[in-house]
């Protein structure tokens, strides 16, 4: 019996992002579509950044998770258009990021507050950070450095 799509979305919601395991690939907004094509389950995944090295690991993790739930006929499709945007990060994902110490993306172009002490006295250290999707900032109140999830 084929599991329904809502169940499959739930399963995918438990697959952590390999670089930021506190959020799932669904929270990140990179799973664009899940459909049954006859007996084949097709999952459309969009890359965050063109060269993000986590992309192939994400595909492997998604496939492994679905196989663990007994699905064998799986096809992963790379979907480029429309390009990924941080607008697709779920609200749940954004609050989990902040609790984890990563400031979530903000349309203003920089973090709205320090994820540790909530101060707004912040300074950018570098436009790039530990992964392609993050920049490096520091809080001038508690003096701790932190990652900011870039808004694109």
């Amino acid at each position: 019996m084929k599991p329904d799509l809502a169940t499959i979305w739930e399963w995918l919601g438990e697959v952590p992002d390999p670089e930021i395991p506190v959020i799932s690939v669904v929270d990140l907004g990179i799973i664009r579509d899940v459909v049954w094509d006859g007996d084949v389950l097709e999952v459309a995944i969009t890359p965050t950044y063109s060269g993000c090295p986590a992309t192939s690991i994400i595909n492997l993790d998604v496939e492994t998770a679905l196989r663990a739930h007994g699905l064998d006929n799986i096809r992963l499709k790379r979907q480029l258009s429309p390009p990924w945007t941080t607008d697709w990060l779920s609200a749940k994902g954004a609050s989990k990021l902040e609790a984890y110490g990563i400031s979530p993306p903000s349309p203003a172009g920089g973090p709205s507050r320090c994820p540790r002490c909530a101060s707004t006295d912040l300074q950018r250290v570098s436009q790039f950070g530990s992964t392609p999707c993050k920049a490096h900032w520091r809080c001038l109140s508690c003096l701790e450095p932190f990652d900011y999830f870039k808004c694109i």
Partner: peptide, 20 residues
Amino acid sequence: LEEDIALANTALDLIGQTQM
């Protein structure tokens, strides 16, 4: 260090675009 990371990240984007 910040410039090192920035250049490596830019390189990564460019190589990713190259693959496409």
